[in-house]
């Protein structure tokens, strides 16, 4: 669907996209990076389970929500890749971090 034009001026970083280690230019927004990696969708809805992908790319539509570094519901179009970032497709409402444990 999309490809990223080569640009050797940019520093590359390692990230994990759905568990796969890839190299991408530092500072690319996560949505653009995900699309250019051939991923066609970034989340499924919690209601019908249908697939959704980035729509506006400017932070207003909330369709590009992904799980970034373990936190669900992050707008991938206004989040920028950093070394070691872990990015996952979001399923429905995502999950909450574990609560504190008690005896």
């Amino acid at each position: 669907m999309f490809k990223q034009l080569p640009n050797d001026q940019l520093e590359m970083v390692d990230i994990l996209l759905n568990g796969e280690k890839i190299q991408v230019p530092l500072g690319t927004n996560v949505a653009a990076m995900t699309l250019s990696q051939g991923q066609r969708y970034t989340r499924t809805t919690s209601l019908s389970g249908s697939k959704r992908a980035p729509f506006c790319m400017m932070g207003v539509c909330y369709e590009c929500l992904m799980v970034i570094d373990g936190i669900a519901n992050q707008r991938s179009c206004v989040t920028y890749v950093k070394q070691g970032m872990q990015i996952e497709t979001q399923q429905g409402v995502g999950s909450l971090p574990e609560g504190a444990h008690h005896e």
């Binding site: 936190i71 669900a72 519901n73 909450l96 971090p97 574990e98 609560g99 504190a100």
Partner: peptide, 9 residues
């Protein structure tokens, strides 16, 4: 009461 809700919008 629910610290796991920190990142909830």
């Amino acid at each position: 009461f629910f610290p796991q809700l920190q990142e909830v919008r």
